[in-house]
Amino acid sequence: MTARRPKIVVIDDSAAAIALYQRSASGLFVDLEVFQSPSESLKYLESNGADLIFTGIIMRETDGWGILKRLNSWAHHQKTPVVVVTSKNYAQDRTLAAQLGAREYLVKPVRSQEIREVICKYTGAEILKQD
């Protein structure tokens, strides 16, 4: 039987941040779906599940608060762990993120290793063997 690869969804309109996630996930047994457009991510998540979602806060179109609220409104994402990754290092934002169901709140800049640890913590992803 082939093991299912956990699906990680990343929402951040920063190309550099997306590159950091891709670097973090390389070598992990996971599938990464990345979205620089929050509205496109919501279209995808409306009809697709995810094992873990990373979202930024300050984004064009829809901010991360809008993402969290929309996810809360969908039954199939009630239990999806969401991790906020943002430059906003404010207590009020941490509280708001927790109220909206975010499991973790990471302040940019984050190291690849920190992202990897979060992925492994919430998905049980394994590190792929290097041949």
Binding site: S14, A15, A16, A17, A19, L20, R23, S87, K108, P109, R111, S112
Partner: peptide, 13 residues
Amino acid sequence: DEQTLLDDMKQED
């Protein structure tokens, strides 16, 4: 490698 990405992030910001 991360520092290169962070430089890009600063430019984006």
